[in-house]
Design a binder for these strands. Structure first.
Lengths: 155, 155
DNA sequence: AATTCTTTGACTAATATTGACTATTATTAT
DNA sequence: ATAATAATAGTCAATATTAGTCAAAGAATT
């Protein structure tokens, strides 16, 4: 949805290829030249947008004939997806990573669009951000209001 | 009406665009420059006039190519139920009351059984209980794991 | 007078871009 | 074979580019 910066354009470019093929193999400097950015920006795009949580495996090789290969992996079954996501979360989870996870759940058809937004509402920053060391009830109230607000509109 | 302060003008400007399009995507500094105000006034306008209660969803992104996107969503007719529930909650909510609310939502066919359990997972005591004044990410991780665990079984 | 709403700006946070330096692999020269 | 060199990709920190927060000052309303 957001394609105003070059990193987003590169991401989209690569994902368009991946929509056709199971994998894409690039020469880093070539893509960098194509979009007129420094080569290391390709690493930035890959590190922020083609993570394992997103369902991508990245392999590379240096030296002559070097390459970066991005492969879209097919996750085995639902339980495996959930287990690996739970493992990946640990005890901290950034907003960005949480959105990636919800996207993965949706891509694997574990949740539908409506459930996506319910979940995003539950973990919305405004819902769970608390400076004061306040009580569980306050937090739960925030989350509940957030979810109720979600239910007020369609799609 | 002696209205028409600058915030009102900005509001009107954005709503005129939204009357034509489903959403509007702006660069904060651009709009600020257009109306000759400091950028943070755009946040003020959005926070006071484009709330979810009014039927607007706002998304943004920082960094190069950053933006603010305002989307108008269609509010459901059942809003009265939701509004009164939100009013009733206030800023605290006990476990018992939260369960009553979820039950009400289900009885009014605003959510289905699956969504009931997703929501209950999101506000589960074990998920949101924290003694230490810890950070948002820890909390979000707890909520997400709780939701994921719920999705592991069917019913 | 008091209260609420608006305006402003200093400070913070998130994300993107760049480039110097490093690491690895392949190729070429000895 | 071994060493030197070339050809790649990786890392990391500095810088740039946005938007967000918050509180104080000012203006409007009650």
């Amino acid at each position: 949805m957001a394609d105003e910066n070059i990193s987003d354009l590169i991401e989209r470019y690569l994902k368009e290829i991946l929509a056709q093929n199971e994998q894409v193999k690039i020469r880093r400097s070539e893509i960098a030249g194509l979009f007129d950015v420094v080569p290391s920006q390709i690493n930035y795009v890959i590190n922020t947008r083609f993570t394992i949580q997103n369902g991508y495996i990245v392999e590379s090789k240096r030296g002559g004939g070097g390459y970066i290969r991005i492969e879209k992996v097919h996750l085995l079954d639902d339980i495996d997806v959930l287990n690996s996501l739970i493992d990946a979360i640990g005890n901290k989870l950034s907003k960005r990573d949480s959105e990636t996870i919800v996207q993965t759940l949706y891509n694997n058809e574990l949740i539908n669009r409506r459930e996506v937004s319910i979940i995003l509402a539950a973990i919305d920053k405004d819902a769970i951000d608390l400076n004061s060391s306040d009580l569980t009830d306050i937090l739960r109230a925030n989350i509940m209001v957030s979810i109720l607000n979600r239910l007020r509109y369609e799609r």
